[in-house]
Design a protein around this nucleic acid. Structure first.
Lengths: 252, 252
DNA sequence: TGACATTTGTTCATATATCGCACAAAATTG
DNA sequence: CAATTTTGTGCGATATATGAACAAATGTCA
């Protein structure tokens, strides 16, 4: 790509939108400038542009995003067949398991939820399409990283902030790589309260007809109700069933 | 705002992202140019910028959005307290009613879902946060338009494409305005298969402590199971309960 | 409180980058 | 294979980014 095929004003603007993501709903120009490491004048112009277009509100001091910004992400959810294709299968799976079922894909060091069928939410985490979790400590993340191959998986681990969320969290890259090898061999990943105390989950990959992994699906359950040891026998058959039902639908 | 406080390259880029929304997952440069009414060279630069940043894939012919684009919308959902605040109440409401419960806000002529607790999906519509429906024929839309006051509501109706989705759909502006008056007086709106045959819903406004309507919540049910006539007695008390529980939480 | 220091928002001139047109090349279509 | 559509690129006109300078607001400390 040539230098002139890049619209830096656009790139800067997107960076400004993402600056709101870090649990900051209101940003002053100076704050946004710090977060994005862009010049204050530049950030100001981006923010005023967002306000002019209705993507943000401005009270003279703080900018806040408006729901119109959801159009951008929705463009993906509406236009991509995968989420809509997975949804009814997740509903069915969730129904049969009596637990929440989700689907996600990898984006950098995170997994991104693209569909979800939830039973009553008992966990503190509120997950919807678009929600993100660190891949290294999520069952779907393990499955997706395992599908990448060792070198690429290791590169992502290096870029990840391997945080000890709970006493159970595995944070040693070599131990994780070994776990990916097991996941590849056995076809599923189980997380026993590595992300949050009280939460277990089990995931399997979703492959297209070429055998490429395009997503992962999982079932999450409260550890109090379903000990990690029982996750496999209770839910793996259901996940495998869903996996098999989806394979012929995923052409390309 | 001064002319020079507007970054048109940014605005053009956002328009390009939205072009994917119209159920088009793959766009060529020429297609995107037509949809956005932007010059081909401009669209090409925007698309290549998106690809360079990882928001889009490019196979040399077609561009597709990647899940990274969800970061943009998620910045809103994560940063705005309203969706997270509403979610547990919707879960509870959905549980008690045995039907799906949702929350939405107004964006132009559309309502935008910001949170949802779904029971098994029987309807053809797959709704997630970010999903949009025309306000004039949705129960939450009626509630939100009614809250605006007559002149503003009428302006939105004028801009709306008042489509006859089903034989039940009300499309006469004056009839709709009269209905808004009733909604304001009685505090709820019911839709009887105006959007889709077989789907009924009932909605109430969610006000903050100043009495400003900040969102609407609803319960949707299959007409086959719950006739429109029964929606009020079955669900209005539950909705009112949720509405009351939320009021003290919405300071500002 | 009031003086000083710091942070924040805004403006401006100018160097730089982008836009959109026109043309050429490539791909698609019938 | 000719006609049509789509894509890539060079260039002049135009729009934007930059960083310094200033003004206004905010914070700090005696």
């Amino acid at each position: 790509m040539r230098e002139t095929d890049f619209v830096s004003g656009f790139a800067r603007g997107l960076k400004v939108i993402e600056a709101f993501g870090e649990t900051r709903q209101r940003l002053s120009i100076a704050e946004a400038s710090k977060l994005t490491e862009l010049d204050r004048a530049t950030v100001r112009r981006s923010l005023l542009t967002l306000a002019e277009l209705g993507y943000a509100d401005y009270d003279g001091k703080f900018f806040t995003l408006t729901p119109k910004i959801l159009r951008l992400g929705h463009a993906y959810l509406a236009a991509t067949p995968l989420p809509a294709l997975l949804q009814p299968h997740l509903d069915h799976l969730s129904e049969k398991a009596g637990q929440s079922a989700s689907a996600s894909v990898l984006d950098g060091t995170d997994i991104v939820y693209i569909a979800r069928a939830s039973q009553r939410r008992v966990m503190s985490i509120n997950l919807t399409p678009g929600s993100r979790l660190p891949a290294y400590c999520a069952s779907m993340g393990r499955v997706l990283l395992a599908a990448l191959g060792e070198r690429e998986a290791r590169e992502i681990l290096i870029r990840s902030e391997l945080k000890q969320n709970t006493p159970n969290t595995k944070t040693d890259p070599d131990e994780l790589i070994a776990e990916f090898r097991r996941v590849r061999a056995e076809g599923y990943a189980i997380i026993d309260q590595e992300l949050e105390i009280g939460l277990c989950s089990i995931a399997v990959p979703i492959d297209n007809d070429r055998g490429e992994t395009v997503a992962a699906i999982n079932i999450g359950a409260p550890a109090a109700l379903v000990p990690a040891a029982e996750m496999k026998e209770r839910y793996l058959p259901l996940l495998k069933e869903t996996q098999a039902a989806l394979r012929p639908l995923l052409r390309r």
